[in-house]
């Protein structure tokens, strides 16, 4: 019995440790590659860490590409889209959770349908629409069209449903206006949900590739994802510089996510666990 317990304790830890190792090694490789001279990347023996340490890749990244501009573009669009997404989904989620209105069931059904609809079903027409609006190579094309997703509305509705009606009615009896009830009672109570919506929206913009690839063609309008992917061709920079760019682009999102990890998983599985 005792030996069996020892054995299972050791095997559990080994399984998890091997999994962690496999997960982390490619990141370490990226880190190492960003500090390596190009010649060493393509030489034997293959090592995880650099034998010769150089900052040339980072210098090339900042002097020979528009990396800083891409970083700015990505931060700006991701930030504004996140702001829009949290406001709109909180308000709409509140309407769906706590009020009755004309065609409510129909609109909510629409939200649920788009929840499961893949992006490629509307991609072509959305592209045409954005071209006709004159939004190509414009921040608006990144910020507005996907600002509200069915998922964020659904998530906020779920969170707001758990706010007790008595609380809202008490505020009404005290003479609070509907707007102030929303801002002062509902919003503070559903902060965790807003956090999840904000992070998912920020990450979606930060990591998206297909949509920016279609609507952005000017260099100075590129986002990080497009910039990094196209670096090899026109700039003739070396692979180490791409790794440097990839690494720096990952840091903000990594920090945000690791800090908020528990909330995010709770938010993502809200439908799954409750079934």
């Amino acid at each position: 019995m005792r030996i069996g317990r020892w054995f299972s304790a050791i095997s559990v830890n080994i399984i998890v440790f091997i999994g962690m190792l496999i997960t982390i090694v490619p990141f370490v490789f990226m880190l190492g590659a960003s500090f390596r001279p190009e010649a060493e990347l393509f030489s034997y023996p293959i090592t995880l860490y650099p034998k010769v340490f150089t900052l040339d890749n980072y210098i090339a990244l900042f002097t020979r590409t528009d990396y800083v501009r891409w970083y700015f573009n990505t931060f700006l669009t991701a930030g504004l889209r996140t702001l829009l997404a949290t406001f709109l989904s909180a308000m709409a989620g509140y309407a769906f959770a706590k009020f009755d209105f004309f065609l409510k069931r129909f609109f909510f059904l629409l939200v649920l349908v788009t929840l499961t609809l893949p992006f490629h079903v509307l991609l072509i027409s959305l592209f045409k629409l954005v071209v006709n609006l004159g939004w190509t190579n414009n921040y608006l094309a990144i910020i507005v069209p996907s600002a509200v997703t069915g998922f964020s509305i659904f998530l906020m509705r779920q969170y707001i449903l758990s706010v007790p009606d008595e609380l809202l009615d008490a505020a009404r009896i005290d003479g609070a206006s509907e707007m102030s009830i929303f801002w002062r009672v509902v919003v503070p109570l559903v902060r965790p949900g807003l956090g999840v919506v904000a992070i998912l929206s920020f990450a979606a913009t930060w990591n998206d590739y297909l949509w920016p690839l279609i609507v952005l063609s000017k260099n100075e309008m590129y986002l990080l994802s497009i910039g990094i992917a196209t670096m090899q061709g026109p700039y003739e920079v070396e692979y180490g510089a791409i790794m440097a760019g990839a690494l720096l682009s990952t840091i903000p999102i990594l920090i945000i996510f690791l800090a908020m990890q528990r909330h995010i998983i709770a938010g993502l599985t809200i439908g799954a666990v409750r079934g």
Binding site: T23, N207, Y209, S225, A229, I242, M243, A246, T250, I253
Partner: peptide, 25 residues
């Protein structure tokens, strides 16, 4: 906690970055 954080990392890393890393791998 360290394990949970580690396993979450690939999920949040951009697909572009992942593709670039694995082209080298």
């Amino acid at each position: 906690t360290l394990a949970r954080m580690t396993f979450f990392m690939p999920y949040i890393t951009s697909a572009v970055v992942i593709a670039m890393i694995f082209r080298m791998v």
